[in-house]
């Protein structure tokens, strides 16, 4: 069995994974070159996923506890404003990943959602990142709203 055959089989086997339908209610503002600082007394986390072929049709919901924060589809980012403290975020496609991080007031943190191939579909990895990596990936990305943003 060649690698191509394996990859084709993997793609077919995971067709049942929901495919992202862009949230029509959430208009996508144009990508900005810089993220505005968070409101006073708050911190913020920028979740982003640069555009790529790996798992492009799939998306991952980012959650904290049971609350959905946003959806990471191919080539999007969103900004989650939150209270300072330790936060634990999870994201899942066919596999789940968790990231625990400290958010301090007035600070902006960057987390990259990386799609990785798995035996049955795709996994997402929440990886700590930085502004330089975000700026590098910004071209071609568009901003989407968080799940709790006013419509």
């Amino acid at each position: 069995m060649t690698l191509r055959a394996v990859l084709a089989a993997l793609a077919l086997s995971s067709v049942s994974v929901p495919v992202l339908a862009e949230d029509a209610a959430a208009p996508a503002p144009a990508a900005t070159s810089a993220i505005a600082p968070p409101p006073a007394g708050k911190g913020q986390v920028v979740f982003f996923r640069h555009m790529g072929l790996m798992g492009a049709p799939y998306w991952a919901k980012v959650r904290e506890k049971d609350a959905e924060i946003g959806k990471l589809s191919d080539g999007v980012y969103f900004v989650a404003v939150t209270d300072p403290g330790v936060h634990t975020y999870t994201a899942a496609v066919t596999g789940k990943d968790t990231l625990r991080m400290q958010v301090d007031p007035g600070e902006t943190y960057y987390v990259e959602g990386r799609m990785t191939i798995a035996l049955l579909g795709y996994n997402v990895v929440l990886a700590p990142s930085d502004e330089a990596a975000f700026q590098k990936a910004l071209s071609g990305m568009k901003r989407v709203k968080t799940a709790d943003a006013p419509q």
Binding site: M101, T116, N123, V125, A127, P128
Partner: peptide
């Protein structure tokens, strides 16, 4: 903070 190499592929 950071992450190591992803070897899932």
């Amino acid at each position: 903070g950071g992450s190591g190499a992803d070897n899932t592929g």
